[in-house]
Amino acid sequence: MGCCMEKNERKEIGEVSQSKWEKLKTKIDKYKEIPGSLISVLQEAQEIYGYLPKEILQQIGESMGIKPAKIHGVATFYTQFRLEPVGKYLISLCQGTACHVNGSKLIEEVIRSELNVDAGGTTKDQLFTLHNVACLGCCSLSPVMMINGETYGKLTPDMARMIIREIMTSEQKGV
């Protein structure tokens, strides 16, 4: 039985990745006609996969006729692209000038010590990724962080700690 289930699971994973690839493939076919579309294709791929897996970069290269070295060069040049998977909650901590002046350093320290992770890293349980961003553009709410698209402004170290702990508790309850 156990073995059988494993097989089914594997099949399911295979189907998921197949459907993801097909989704990307249609995008690639669309962009192939437009010269200079590599960045757009990588953006689509990241949208689908959440990051840029190495083998997908390889496949993109093969389908578009672009050398792997060039794809790697472009993917590593821009800060938007991630070569590692991210956690369930992506914390984008604003490090813009206004946030810096208003104490984003303290917020970062709190989050790092709460999660025991460095900027750019993901927690061992794959729950959180801490990502420093240049500016989220809500300077009048500084210091600001964004967690999965939701903005939290006028942060204090205590508030940041509470927000993180709340997510942790709700996750533990969920499990």
């Binding site: 010269p35 200079g36 579309s37 590599l38 960045i39 757009s40 990588l42 953006q43 060069g73 472009v74 040049f77 821009y78 800060t79 938007q80 692209f81 240049a134």
Partner: peptide, 25 residues
């Protein structure tokens, strides 16, 4: 519309053009 991918240097004209062409900016 072309969405940039996060590089400050792409505010420079010639870097922006390189990025539009799908290259490193």
């Amino acid at each position: 519309i072309k969405a940039g991918a996060g590089a400050f240097v792409c505010g420079e004209e010639t870097a922006l053009i390189a990025s539009l062409e799908g290259e490193r900016g």
